[in-house]
Design a protein around this nucleic acid. Structure first.
Lengths: 289, 289
DNA sequence: GTCGGGGTAGAATGGACGTTCCATTTTCCC
DNA sequence: GGGAAAATGGAACGTCCATTCTACCCCGAC
């Protein structure tokens, strides 16, 4: 009989390790065990809370298969494997709602401004969460493509959107990407835009209530076949119709003041992605490929 | 005998509701049940995962007390109360690390720009998390106080910080707070600042590498007893020494590009808090109180 | 002082749980 | 195609669980 104690050393001790091991050995697992492997990674919460019997039914295997599965990975039985799944829920970093709730319970009661501060942080978190799922990566790729190929990038933004374009202007400067910042000094904007050609491109940002200037400038550029990429907050935005690619980005708000965090993160990502693509186009733009 | 069905209507169905009910009735609970109430709110995870026996030991009561506790709140038995605690963990919004990990597993492999995008969103989240804990609410309160009492607020920011002050300028305009935006057109800045008096105040933003102008402007204002509030990224910032209140805010970065999300959220909160305090000062500034 | 009733502890109970075992089926190698 | 080894299904088992029940205790009312 083989002594058991030494086996315990390489048993996964946390969920990530377990997941890695399962994934690694999944292919070589027998049919039923593979079934359990798939189920366990797809429904970790069920494993954490369910009973062997209920999980077995749900995964369409026998309870004994669960035990064998656990033992295959070095656990003593199903129960000890289940501990890993429970620990995962215990230790999971709490959602920011909870973190901020905890925060506001501590600080907010002390000082009124604290709640304002927490409110904006929370709104920013929500916005970022939203943008992470709502931006279509393919559209993003197309936008990067258009702007990376442009000779000069025209940045169009007024009022609330202006901080975004001014960041991009700063970053483009650092990254040596040719740009024109439209919206700075009134009057010369249209003259500036009149010089744009098909070889250029524009990036326009406008949120409701839409600045009519931005819309008409975008329209004018589009009519002269200058490609326009835009960032706005609604499909009905006047910018959308003039744009080759456009992104809908709804910022969360606190007390009616909309966050800019998601737009900012988007702008940074776009800026860096453009610069990076330019780099590659410049390097690979020669004879090869 | 009283029919049971109607009792089920006011049984708490989620953790928040349960918590509220427990808190509400806690004071009037018998000794042992109060003990359980305290334990359950302090160790919700234990309730979720433990067995009645283990929880009873840990809370230093009898298992039967747990059952009575559950029944006191309208549950059929301890197990159904436990479901509430389990659901709480199940439905807890996952940490954004997990969300983004999941996201990047889907999208990133498809498109390279996706990873840039996700990276910036993640950096922004991290920044926000950091700022939520690092900003001292009392310092924030003092900053609000100084700036709310100022006649004119001078906004000082260059380069990377400029988008932040330009947002504040926009918002102050909307909120009818008198301000001067320093850093727009070169040359007239110092003339503008020369007009500042003790009745005014300044808000300066500068991150490393610090713009020497911003530092010297802040120093000049401070020497003339114009109160300065500043936002910077290090205790060694030249701004700190000139400031009555200053905030250290370290932004997370992705690929070397620092986020602006936390600074932006901070700026928004400060702006709105100032405006709100001004409102109150104006209203309550009269005879009463 | 004792009576009554809510509160509690702890043993009793019945059911469900994880696990084990073995007969059967499947897989793969000779 | 036969046979051994691995994999599987399903029943059996002993344990531990949540719950119930009953006796006891405490504490205020009369």
């Amino acid at each position: 009989m083989m002594p058991t104690p030494e086996r315990t050393v390489d048993v996964p001790q946390d969920f990530e390790a377990l997941k890695a091991v399962i994934l690694e050995r999944k292919a070589q697992l027998p049919k039923r065990l593979k079934q359990v492997a798939a189920y366990s990674l797809d429904n970790p919460d069920e494993i954490a809370f369910g009973t062997a019997a209920s999980i077995a039914t749900s995964a369409d295997v026998q309870p004994s298969t669960l035990v064998r599965f656990a033992q295959h990975f070095g656990f003593e039985g199903f129960s000890s494997l289940q501990q890993i799944f429970r620990a995962r829920l215990r230790e999971r970093t709490p959602g920011y709602e909870e973190r901020l709730k905890a925060l506001s319970q501590n600080e907010h009661s002390k000082l009124e401004s604290g709640s304002i501060f927490n409110g904006f942080v929370a709104a920013a978190h929500r916005s970022l969460d939203n943008v992470a799922t709502s931006v279509d990566p393919e559209a993003f790729e197309r936008a990067v493509d258009i702007l990376a190929k442009a000779d000069t990038i025209y940045l169009i933004a007024k009022r609330r959107s202006y901080p975004i374009s001014s960041y991009m202007a700063y970053a483009f400067g650092k990254l040596k990407v040719k740009y024109q910042h439209v919206g700075t000094a009134a009057g010369i904007d249209d003259d500036m835009l009149a010089m744009a050609t098909k070889q250029d491109a524009a990036f326009a940002v406008s949120f409701s209530p839409y600045a009519s200037e931005s819309a008409s400038q975008a329209r004018s550029l589009a009519s002269r076949r200058v490609p326009v990429v835009s960032l706005t907050d609604s499909a009905f935005s006047p910018l959308a119709e003039s744009s080759k690619v456009w992104f809908e980005l709804v910022e969360a708000d606190h007390a009616g003041f909309r966050s800019l965090s998601a737009s900012m993160a988007f702008a940074m990502a776009l800026t860096v992605a453009i610069a990076e693509k330019r780099q590659r186009l410049a390097d690979g733009g020669g004879p090869i490929e």
